[in-house]
Simulated scan of single mutants.
Amino acid sequence: MRKHLFIGVDALFITNPTNIRYLTGFVGVEDRDAYCLVTQNQFYFFTSSLYLESAKKLRAKVLEISRENPIAKEIARLCEELKIKKLGFEEANLTVAEYNKLKGLHLVPTNNRIEQLRMIKRADEIAHIRLAANLTDQCFKFITRRIRPGVTESRLALEIEGFLRSRGADLAFSPIVAFNEHSFQPHYHERSYDPLRRGSLILLDFGAKINGYCADMTRVVFVGKPKDGWVRAYNTVLQAQNKALGLLRDGVRSGATLDAAAKEVIAEANLPPYPHSLGHNVGLDVHEGPRLSVKKDEKLLPGMVFSVEPAVYIEGTYGIRIEDLVRLTDKGIEILSTSPKEMIIL
């Protein structure tokens, strides 16, 4: 176990289901189907009788919990048995009710300790993300053939979901399909039944999830001749992304520097820079740390997989965002998203 996990504590009580999956590979149905206790020498995995059989293959000591033998009782027993004096817990995940049941123990709040491990992807994790990115690219090719006047946002979103699920994948998140003025909302999640008309733009933001690992990609396509302002904004956003990717290739590893450089390209074109970060790590969650943001400079390290997604949003009118997944290596970068970025006019 890495030493930073145990700074100020003797053990960690893990309740976040994504962190439990990362540590053990276990996938439950509900949020509290399992818990973990992590010491410097051992994983302890707690679950009910429903999952004991599947838990046998985990590299952990498996202990059964139930209504008669609840998790708080087992944790207290182990803390006494293992002489754990300070028990760290995930302050962003443990509920007040769970905390109250553990009050007899010396509890120490911790934040993002497992998430820090998750920032650097193992080879198997990168392989899963690469598969998810590849399927996302296939889905983009598929969905552009379904775009025609008369189709609705709702229909296209359903087609994206069906394509991914029919190939054994899950959704990294609910697909964003935004026509025209809807696209200025970065995370638009309504689904209009208004039919697509010629002279429109469509923002598509979606990702496959394979073996628990997410992809995330955004493209904008045009139906009929695009407006001059759209063309200018599109080219500016693409230029901003190319600027950030070029700096990454040149060895820049400061998230803040990359974000500032992309925003500068957009500002110099007299367009409003995007209000969000340039990107975020991707893994078991579609949004993971660190973020590429001027608000908090964080160093990017080999093994990270993150999005690069500059944008222009004109309130009430339109939005254009171009997003790729990027893997950082010791030698440079690998762009995992391969869907075309030249302007697509259907």
Rank of each mutant, 00 (worst) to 15 (best):
I129E: 04
L156A: 06
R2S: 07
D10H: 03
K56F: 01
P340T: 10
E80D: 12
G25K: 14
A267G: 08
K263D: 01
E64A: 12
T15C: 11
E264A: 05
Y313I: 06
A269W: 01
E342F: 07
E81I: 08
R122L: 12
P290C: 08
V108P: 03
E159I: 01
P186Q: 10
Y188D: 02
A97F: 02
E342K: 08
I84P: 05
G104P: 00
K85Q: 14
S54W: 00
N180W: 05
Q185L: 03
A311H: 03
N281K: 04
L87R: 08
L78Y: 06
E90Y: 02
G332E: 06
F173S: 10
I176D: 13
K86W: 00
A133T: 13
S337C: 07
V96P: 08
K243A: 14
R253W: 02
K56S: 04
V312D: 01
V221H: 03
L12H: 03
N16Y: 00
T18G: 01
T257F: 07
V27G: 00
D216C: 08
D285M: 14
N69D: 05
N235R: 14
L82C: 04
L204K: 07
S337D: 13
P310Y: 00
L58C: 09
S192Y: 00
F173T: 10
L271P: 05
A76K: 15
Q42H: 12
G279S: 07
G319Q: 03
L196Q: 10
K83N: 12
Y99T: 11
I75W: 00
S337R: 06
K103S: 15
E125H: 12
A157W: 00
Y213Q: 05
K227S: 08
I120W: 02
L204S: 07
R165V: 15
K56G: 02
D10A: 01
L328H: 08
T15Y: 01
A92W: 02
V286N: 06
N180H: 10
R198G: 11
L23I: 11
Y234V: 10
E268R: 15
K121D: 11
I84Q: 05
R145V: 02
R21I: 00
T15A: 11
E309C: 10
I345V: 15
I71V: 12
C79R: 01
L278G: 11
G332H: 11
L247A: 04
A172K: 00
S293A: 13
E161G: 02
P340N: 09
K296V: 12
K299R: 13
